[in-house]
Amino acid sequence: MPAIDGSLETLQAALTYHRERHTVLAGNVANLDTPGYRPLDLSRPSPGGDGQTQVITSFDDGGAFQGPDGNAVSLERELAKIDANRTRYNTTAELVSRRIAMLRYAAGDGT
């Protein structure tokens, strides 16, 4: 059930996606020294067959040159992803705030 329009639901799904992705990326950093570990990532959400749901898949992020112990985590790459992901999350949070401010303005007497 959309609240006035669908934009808040869309933004909420975006916040959830970025939060999940942060957890996955934090796991890559934690496994910096785990032999044989390959870094993981979540794909950007794409619309599902019914046009309503969002499909998110995970994939092997390829990472860096695989070291002798089979670990392919690149610290710089993961930290860059974490930072970019954080910026996207914060931007989305700001959009939600502004959307709510607009709704508040519309619901009030325009002052």
Partner: peptide, 26 residues
């Protein structure tokens, strides 16, 4: 020690994101 610092960075990022989420609507 460097890997520890990287872990701290990842953790502060999670905290920062959570704080921004708390600020929604303010």
């Amino acid at each position: 020690s460097r890997a520890y610092e990287a872990g701290i960075t990842a953790m502060s990022t999670a905290v920062n994101m959570a704080e921004r989420a708390l600020g929604i609507g303010r």
